[in-house]
């Protein structure tokens, strides 16, 4: 019985693919809190190809942001990566010393966050801010860096880049600050851009425009994107492949359009049924019952067990591995076929 459910890395075998950029295996990031050990990331496997746009969707507390921070090795105390491996461009990130990791950040891997204003220097002009990164990592002169910065802002549909480069952060809107951060993140031509809820604080129209321009920009630089969000819409707009995260584990992974058409995990089904969507006018919402488990709870089996409408005893006893149900479609459920048919009708 048990050997049927082998935990396999979704999308690829154990042999590294030629275009593979990032491979995360059995990643575990724990937080030692007063209430016990919070397993925020509890055994996560995934890989990312060069230039690919991968979405990581989950509700608050699902561990998506901690996963993103773990790849950057920016997890703060009391959090610690306690297990697994992260391979980026062939080298093991967890084995790197702090110095090499620092050099990698900003040049090969960049990150953008939800609150852009907190990540800009309030007393530094935007132009100096952007060009400093380029000067630091690539040794480009200030003038050339300014020209490059203006060119990138132009792609991001900034009407007058020169004015923006001369401004201070407080003079810009939230959307503009986020564009500036994106420009800073991408100007060095990184192989991977991690966007952690980067558009969540923005208005829908601004979000749509930034996502589209980000798409253009990453095409130019050949940058892969790992995008964490709680918003279905964002994944739809920006990602070709998506992973659904729940309780620190990946519960489903497939192409984005497949996820919306044919979800194979009861949590994904519940999530989709919880969100009012303009394409499904007239359909009632069927919210999931209950709350997600606390990250400190010790759960052997499936983390969704307590809320699952199709649960069986086996789900409580054994952790369902992420297994390939159809070609390229992975689900961590013992009964993936039942998820869709039984729940949503």
């Amino acid at each position: 019985m048990q050997q049927h459910f082998r935990t396999i890395d979704p999308g690829a075998g154990k042999v590294p693919q030629p275009d593979e950029l990032l491979r995360v295996e059995d990643l575990r990031t724990h937080f030692h809190t007063r209430h016990g050990i919070a397993k925020s990331v509890d055994g996560v496997d995934f890989h990312l190809s060069k230039g690919e746009h991968l979405g990581l969707i989950g509700e608050s507390g699902s561990g998506k942001s901690v996963t993103a921070l773990s790849v950057m090795r920016l997890v703060r105390e009391p959090g610690r990566i306690v297990g697994g491996s992260i391979h980026f461009e062939g080298q093991d990130l967890l084995g790197l010393d702090a110095q090499s990791m620092r050099r990698l950040r900003g040049s090969r891997i960049s990150m953008i966050f939800q609150d852009p204003l907190n990540h800009l220097d309030p007393v530094m002009k935007i132009g100096d801010w952007i060009s400093e990164t380029l000067t630091l990592h690539k040794g480009v002169g200030r003038k050339a860096a300014y020209v490059e910065a203006a060119r990138i802002l132009k792609v991001l549909k900034v009407a007058s880049p020169e004015d923006v480069l001369r401004a201070y952060p407080f003079q810009l809107s939230g959307g503009m600050c986020q564009r500036v951060l994106i420009a800073t993140a991408i100007i060095t031509g990184p192989a991977l851009l991690i966007a952690d809820e980067a558009t969540s604080a923005l208005d829908v129209t601004v979000q749509a425009s930034i996502l589209r321009n980000l798409d253009e920009l990453t095409d130019i630089f050949g940058t892969a994107v790992l995008l964490t969000t709680h918003n279905m819409l964002v994944v739809r707009q920006a990602c070709t492949r998506v992973m659904v995260m729940y309780g620190g584990r990946i519960v489903e992974s497939c192409d984005t359009d497949v996820l919306f058409r044919n979800p194979m995990h009861p949590y994904t089904v519940g999530l989709l049924d919880s969100v009012p969507a303009l394409e499904r006018i007239g359909e009632p919402l069927r919210p999931m019952a209950g709350e997600p488990p606390l990250p400190t709870e010790d759960i052997v089996g499936c983390k969704f067990y307590g809320r699952c409408p199709i649960r069986r005893p086996v789900c409580q006893e054994m952790r369902p591995p992420l297994a390939e149900v159809e070609s390229g479609h992975w689900s961590a459920c013992f009964f993936p076929e039942e998820s869709r048919s039984k729940i949503s009708s």
């Binding site: 009407a159 208005d203 129209t205 749509a208 425009s209 707009q237 359009d257």
Partner: peptide, 16 residues
């Protein structure tokens, strides 16, 4: 929006 490459016509640029 349907996907990464859907029609651009109605995406607004600029901020409110």
């Amino acid at each position: 929006l349907e996907g990464p490459s859907s029609s651009d016509a109605t995406i607004l640029d600029g901020d409110p």
